[in-house]
């Protein structure tokens, strides 16, 4: 008995965490068996079992592969573009005061506003399809990266700048040896936010502005009240989101070997 108890103590966090999820799924599964749902609701009700079956079916039949490929491409292109734009722009904004003061109102406004607001306009300009979603992903991911890069550059340690300059470093060496490494943790934190926003961008972009991709699949299913597919899509996105977050965490760990343990995540 005691041995089990101590084993439980050791793994309490995981047992409780998984336990709750299992319990939740079970309760959901059993609901239609225990309660008589009102007719309107019963029509749209599904259970985890059906969702899992549908997801399995969609994956094995290859139905989802094409849409997944589309969504993935939009994500990669949009995020890639935002990195290409945000890093140089953030570096420049962090180094030049006037430029930063001029850009600031635009950055604040676009960062505060949900990207969705621009969607009708983006669809008008880029047409119904992949590119509208790419643009939405791009706008969404751009600002967290831009702001964090800029903050990282601005918060560079004055002492370190002096140290490196005292050894006769030029502006470019200063950038490479101090400014960029110093901004790295900020950039990674920005990347983490950007990934979340990019995934959201894929969903809303495809929901309202595309005729392909997993988000479109969900929107179409929702329009036809095929609830299983909506939830299956949700789970797919959830999975991607978790995988990407873990990947960034790995990257962060790799790049921050030099930092003391307690400040690694912020």
């Amino acid at each position: 008995m005691n041995r089990y108890l101590s084993q439980y103590r050791e793994n309490e966090e995981h047992i409780l965490g998984w336990g709750f999820i299992v319990l939740f799924l079970l309760a959901w599964e059993l609901t239609p068996h225990l309660v008589a749902l009102p007719k309107g609701l019963a029509l749209f009700f599904t259970t985890p079992y059906h969702i899992a079956l549908k997801l399995f079916d969609m994956v094995t039949s290859g139905e989802v592969a094409f849409h997944f490929y589309v969504s993935g491409s939009e994500f990669v292109i949009g995020l890639g573009l935002s990195i290409l734009v945000a890093l140089p722009l953030g570096l420049v904004m962090g180094r030049f005061y006037t430029l930063n003061a001029m850009f600031d109102p635009f950055v604040t406004a676009f960062n505060a506003t949900p990207r969705l607001v621009f969607l009708p306009l983006v669809v008008l300009w880029f047409g119904f399809g992949i590119w509208s979603t790419v643009v939405i992903v791009f706008i969404g991911a751009l600002f967290p990266l831009l702001i964090n890069t800029y903050e990282g550059v601005k918060n560079v340690d004055r002492v370190l700048v002096n140290v490196v300059r005292s050894f006769g470093a030029n502006e470019w060496q200063l950038m490479k040896i101090v400014v960029l490494p110093n901004s790295m943790p900020y950039i990674i934190a920005g990347l983490r936010l950007a990934i979340g926003r990019a995934i959201l961008g894929v969903v809303v972009g495809e929901f309202f502005g595309s005729d392909q991709g997993v988000g479109f699949l969900m929107a179409e299913a929702a329009g036809n009240y095929i609830v299983d597919v909506v939830f299956a899509g949700l789970i797919l996105f959830m999975g991607i989101s978790l995988v990407m977050t873990m990947a960034v965490k790995k990257l962060e760990d790799r790049l921050s070997r030099w930092r003391p343990e307690q400040v690694k995540t912020f």
């Binding site: 002492v159 005292s166 050894f167 101090v178 110093n182």
Partner: peptide, 20 residues
């Protein structure tokens, strides 16, 4: 006129590059 190799400074706050 600027920094030069014949001078080097030891800084109060150490000024070590934490990532090196």
């Amino acid at each position: 006129t600027g920094p030069g190799v014949e001078r080097a400074m030891v800084f109060q706050e150490f000024g070590l590059l934490p990532w090196r």
